[in-house]
Computed example of a mutant assay.
Amino acid sequence: MAEINTSAESVRALMSGALERVRKANTEYFDLLERGLGSSPLPIANQAKDFCTFMRRNVGATFDLGDKLINAKDMQDALKLQADFFQDQMRALTEQARAMSESAMKTAGGMFGPKI
């Protein structure tokens, strides 16, 4: 029985290490993307940066879920973690959609408003 537990711990350690490497690569990708957006002359560059921030947050939350699932005690714990994640993501999506539509309305208003 000790072999099974040791084996499970080995798998958890491998999964945690792999998840950490993917998380690091993801961080580097978003850093590069944000630098590229920062140098963009496009008028929607600010909205693109906001969208990138939202993507970074959402992907980070997914990695956090992965960390939690790797350490789940049993299937019931894993299902609760997934349900909580889903609810949190729905709340975040609602807030992000509101923020993006406000930003788009400001940008559109600036494009079609009076020129002073």
Rank of each mutant, 00 (worst) to 15 (best):
M1Y: 12
A2N: 07
A2I: 13
I4A: 13
T6M: 13
S7G: 11
A8T: 13
E9Y: 02
E9H: 02
S10H: 09
R12H: 04
R12A: 06
A13G: 09
L14S: 13
G17M: 09
G17N: 13
A18N: 14
A18S: 14
L19T: 01
L19S: 01
L19Q: 01
E20L: 11
R23Y: 03
R23N: 04
R23D: 03
K24S: 15
K24P: 01
K24H: 10
N26D: 14
E28I: 12
F30T: 00
D31M: 11
L32I: 07
L32W: 08
R35V: 07
G36I: 03
L37T: 00
L37A: 05
L37Q: 01
L37F: 04
L37E: 00
G38Y: 00
S39C: 05
S39F: 00
S39H: 05
S39V: 11
L42A: 15
L42D: 15
P43M: 11
P43V: 14
P43Y: 03
N46L: 08
N46P: 03
Q47V: 10
A48Q: 04
A48G: 03
A48M: 10
K49N: 03
F51E: 03
F51V: 06
C52V: 05
C52E: 00
T53S: 02
T53H: 01
M55C: 12
M55L: 15
R56N: 01
R57W: 01
R57H: 10
R57D: 06
N58Q: 15
G60K: 02
G60S: 08
A61Q: 04
A61D: 09
D64F: 01
L65H: 01
G66S: 04
G66P: 01
D67G: 09
D67A: 08
D67V: 06
D67W: 02
D67F: 05
K68T: 07
L69C: 07
L69M: 09
L69E: 02
I70H: 00
I70K: 01
N71D: 11
A72Q: 05
K73Q: 14
K73W: 08
K73E: 15
K73M: 11
K73A: 15
D74T: 08
D74H: 03
D74E: 08
M75P: 00
Q76V: 14
D77W: 06
D77L: 09
A78C: 05
L79A: 12
K80I: 08
K80H: 12
L81K: 01
L81E: 02
A83R: 06
A83W: 05
F85M: 08
D88A: 13
M90T: 10
R91I: 07
A92L: 06
A92D: 04
A92K: 00
L93R: 03
L93H: 07
L93N: 09
T94I: 12
E95D: 15
Q96F: 07
Q96Y: 07
A97V: 13
A97Q: 13
R98K: 15
R98L: 13
R98M: 12
R98T: 13
A99D: 06
M100L: 15
M100W: 07
M100Y: 07
S101H: 14
S101L: 13
S101I: 07
E102F: 09
S103I: 02
A104V: 14
M105H: 10
M105K: 14
M105Q: 15
M105E: 13
K106D: 05
K106A: 08
A108P: 02
A108G: 07
A108C: 10
G109F: 14
G110M: 12
G110K: 10
F112R: 10
F112C: 09
G113N: 06
K115M: 08
K115T: 04
I116Y: 11
